[in-house]
């Protein structure tokens, strides 16, 4: 175990000067950024890119749209899921449209953070669930990416342990590129303990470069873009 001062001083001496006391400046090089012209285009390109990664998705304009969309994706599956009351695990509070849609469908939601006392029990619940449901804080059109911040009423395992992950995101939360998202995140001050950027399903090409979907994370990923 090396003393911090000693460690830093040694680097300063290798650099041949004293350690700066102020954040050193530098001139950043500009890079050409990907820009879209309007929100409609942004939503549709986000969806295209999400689907190209192997995700499913839809843009909804109303509660009816949402209900129909969820029924189409999960209606048949739900009937076959054993352990039905605990099959869907969700954030404590989902975007309003999502809350209403699940109520209208009468599909029971297990609220992750309240579902069990200990972390181990929560993980087991999430691992046994068939579908995890979350919202997202931001989305990136260029890469088809969802950006989800951790929060006491959320739970990070919901988007990770179940074999399916469904996210609701308002179209107004979509951005063109990563840079815009990072600028907004930087303005938060102390960042949340986890910012997860998710681009499509879990994948690997580790065996003979052959693409396989769903090695550790969700195998199927769904996004509902709420036109707001």
């Amino acid at each position: 175990m090396t003393n911090t001062n000693e460690f830093i001083n040694q680097l300063a001496s290798k650099l041949g000067r004293a350690t700066p006391t102020e954040t050193p400046n530098y001139v950043a090089s500009n890079v050409p950024q990907y820009r879209l012209s309007n929100p409609k285009e942004r939503a549709s390109i986000f969806l295209d890119n999400w689907q190209a990664l192997g995700g499913k998705g839809a843009i909804v304009e109303s509660l009816e749209d949402t209900v129909q969309c969820l029924r189409g994706w999960f209606g048949d599956l739900l009937a076959a899921w054993p352990n039905k009351p605990q099959a869907i695990i969700a954030w404590d509070l989902l975007p309003t449209v999502a809350e209403y849609a699940f109520k209208a469908l009468e599909w029971p939601l297990v609220r992750y953070t309240q579902a069990a006392q200990t972390a181990v029990d929560r993980y087991s619940l999430a691992a046994l669930a068939e579908l995890g449901v979350t919202g997202a804080d931001r989305g990136i059109a260029l890469s088809g990416t969802l950006v989800i911040n951790s929060h006491p009423q959320r739970g990070r395992a919901i988007s990770l342990l179940p074999p399916r992950h469904l996210t609701f995101i308002e179209a107004s939360k979509l951005r063109d590129n990563l840079f815009e998202v990072l600028e907004e995140l930087a303005s938060l001050g102390i960042p949340p303990s986890a910012i997860e950027m998710i681009s499509g399903p879990s994948r690997t090409s580790d065996i003979e470069m052959d693409l396989s979907i769903g090695v550790h994370g969700p195998i199927e990923v769904y996004v509902v873009v709420i036109d707001d």
Binding site: S143, T145, P191, S193, A194, I195, M197, R203
Partner: peptide, 11 residues
């Protein structure tokens, strides 16, 4: 364009 999972963690 981005890896499937990019995690920015502040534990």
């Amino acid at each position: 364009r981005l890896s499937s999972y990019t995690s920015i963690l502040t534990p």
